[in-house]
Nucleic acid binder design. Structure first.
Length: 477
RNA sequence: GGCCCCCUCGUCUAGUGGUUAGGACGCUUGGUUCUCAACCAAGUAACACGGGUUCAACUCCCGUGGGGGCUACCA
């Protein structure tokens, strides 16, 4: 049977690193095994789910290069793929479970439940529901409903040890006597996550459930549910969690940046995929740089580790630089321009024909595209002066004089020539090395750092250089 | 509190009874260079702890400690 996996986010927020890894691993596993990936939207929490999140999640996944075979947008044989549109299925399932005597109405209020929990805790007992509505007579149930009480429906948990093989964790076992009966249908008729997941995974013929480790304790419940509904439970693989810098859980603000923030910073999608794949997975041969396509061919679940990992921005940045340097010049510039356009940060001082040359200067210098915006300022006639204190050193004056002479003599549309300028400077200026080049650089670019002058000079104009030289001279005097 | 999962350099990891415990990021130093970056070279640093099992444990078992998760009519 062919592999069918799913990524099932709830649209209650944007995709963050943790989500992305689950999505990516599902995608890679499907891809590697020529299987199918289902995108299913778990929007049973009416309060918190928002359609715009669904849209953004799909956009982000697409940006990352994660492709799905079935989903809300592309459809499929087992749709619909939004749980809010599958209520009939959950209703059916509940009816069948009730008929089979595996589910029952529960009239306990939130206060009742709290009291039970507190009592159990005080006695040091497992904090489980005491199943007290299990024994309700049909007549009692009818009376309560007739009196206007809205019941929830609980699943009857079978006691005993439940054991299963997790692809990542290995053999896992739980004592089901420690679990109380759990709610599968809320009083308002909406299913809970447990029911919806099992019904859908069953109906959609999911073969492997790859999800976060936070779901590990849910799995024995789900296995019982699957069986009670007549489904063969899928295989499970529980991924360890990703932590923040200090090892604390990845929270919304700390490091759990949304995909969009990475897009804005100017990382390539391949970089994010590559870095996240390396969190918990290693090919075993010390290789670290992968394009998504290569991951699709290399990934396997049995090389996924068990321990939680910390998200490290430094390494992400290194990886990003590596990817950028592997791009061809054309690709680098094309993607740079794409980024600048998307961020509405296209330089106004250069037309597109010139831009190629300007941008290419920074290919070896940046880790992500947003650095480009600032770096490009060395070509911007409107860019403010920076680092001009370097011009205070006494030797700067003679350098400025030579510069002025050279550029004033230059034809209006003539390209500045590094060699010629250099000869002139060598001939008439006493300083050399750093003492020559630093003031020179600052006078021409207004920045103490940047690509080699030799590289950038051909991209500068007489007008721009003179403007800066005059400004620098007046500053110096 | 109860149950479950996890534990190799600061970080990501390789390793499956016998290794000088390997690689990468970071950091340090040197090289290159007009600067920054990049690049090259070298260096730094780890098996959480305590008991077993064994001729031999990072590897297996048991405890302790630490971290995390679940314990919702959230997913």
């Amino acid at each position: 049977m062919s592999v069918r996996v799913r990524f099932a986010p709830s649209p209650t927020g944007y995709l963050h690193i943790g989500n992305v890894r689950t999505a990516l691993f599902n995608f890679l596993f499907a891809s590697r095994n020529n299987g199918e990936l289902i995108l299913r939207i778990e929007d049973t929490d009416q309060e918190r789910s928002k359609p715009e999140y669904t849209q953004q999640i799909m956009k982000d996944l697409a940006w990352l290069g994660i492709r799905w075979n079935e989903g809300p947008d592309v459809g499929g044989k087992f749709g619909p793929y939004e749980q809010s549109k599958r209520l009939n299925h959950y209703r059916d399932a509940v009816n069948k479970l009730m008929e089979a005597d595996r589910a029952y109405y529960c009239f306990c209020s939130t206060e009742d439940l709290d009291a039970i929990k507190k009592e159990n805790q005080a006695k040091g007992l497992p904090p489980k529901y005491n199943n007290r509505c299990r024994g309700l007579e049909d007549s009692e149930v009818e009376a309560k409903i007739a009196s206007g009480q809205k019941p929830s429906v609980r699943f009857m948990v079978e006691e005993g040890m439940l054991e299963f093989e997790d692809i990542i964790r290995g053999h896992v076992k739980f004592d089901m006597g420690l679990f109380g009966d759990f709610v599968i249908l809320r009083p308002d008729g909406m299913p809970t996550f447990h029911l919806a997941v099992c019904v859908d995974d069953g109906l959609m013929k999911v073969t492997h459930v790859i999800r976060g480790e936070d779901h590990l304790p849910n799995t024995p419940r789900h296995i019982q549910l699957f069986r009670a509904m007549g489904f063969e439970p899928p295989k499970f693989a529980h991924l360890s969690l990703i932590m923040g810098k200090g090892g604390e859980p990845l929270s919304k603000r700390l490091g759990a940046m949304s995909v969009q923030e990475y897009t804005q910073t100017g990382y390539l999608p391949d970089v994010i995929d590559n870095y996240i794949a390396l969190l918990g997975w290693a090919p075993g041969d010390n290789r670290e740089i992968f394009k998504l396509k290569e991951l699709e061919q290399t990934f396997s679940l049995d090389r996924v580790g068990k321990s939680a990992s910390i998200f490290d921005l430094e390494k992400l940045n290194w990886l990003s630089g590596e990817h950028l340097r592997q791009l061809s010049d054309d690709e680098f510039v094309r993607k740079s321009v794409e980024y600048l356009e998307l961020q509405n940060a296209m330089p106004k001082f250069a037309d597109k024909s010139k831009l190629f040359g300007l941008i290419l200067n920074f290919k070896d210098n940046i880790a992500h595209f947003d650095e480009l915006i600032d770096r490009l300022a060395i070509f911007d006639p409107e860019a403010p002066m920076q680092d001009v204190e370097i011009l205070k050193q006494p030797q700067a004056a003679e350098i400025l004089i030579v510069l002025k002479e050279y550029f004033e003599a230059l034809g209006a549309s003539e390209v500045p020539n590094y060699e010629v300028l250099n000869q002139k400077l060598k001939a008439s200026v006493t300083v050399k090395g750093k003492e020559l080049f630093m003031p020179l650089r600052v006078a021409l670019t207004f920045r103490a750092h940047g690509p080699e002058l030799k590289r950038i000079l051909p991209h500068m104009t007489k007008e721009l250089c003179l403007k800066r030289i005059y400004a620098a001279t007046s500053q110096h005097v």
